[in-house]
């Protein structure tokens, strides 16, 4: 654990807690492929999704952040396209 020296924290704001929680649930399913080299932690704080990515090197963290943002972007776009249709 102590070797995961490099850390990035991302704060993604959502309109409400429900959507932030959905994003957390959707994005938590896929585990990092090399758990020993990189770890990802997600928490909902208020209406934001707070993501902490830790890795053994800057390179590993950069790759993980880039990949995470691609997927998070898709979640946000999907919510924008379909979230308003029919409130549950």
């Amino acid at each position: 654990m102590s070797t995961l020296a490099h850390t990035v924290t991302i704060n993604i704001p959502f309109p409400d807690t429900r959507l932030a929680t959905i994003a957390q649930q959707v994005l938590s399913v896929d585990k990092e492929l090399k758990a020993a080299e990189c770890q990802k932690e997600m928490n909902v704080e208020g209406t934001s999704l707070v993501v902490t990515i830790r890795g053994v090197s800057v390179r590993v963290v950069r790759t993980a952040v880039s990949s995470f943002l691609d997927f998070a972007g898709l979640v946000v776009n999907t919510m924008e396209a379909f979230g308003e249709d029919e409130p549950r």
């Binding site: 959905i22 959707v26 399913v29 896929d30 898709l74 979640v75 919510m79 379909f82």
Partner: peptide, 14 residues
């Protein structure tokens, strides 16, 4: 994974 993420999001939204 990209397609699964869209499906999961829709599942929770709907």
């Amino acid at each position: 994974v990209s397609v699964a993420i869209a499906a999961r999001t829709l599942s929770l939204l709907w």
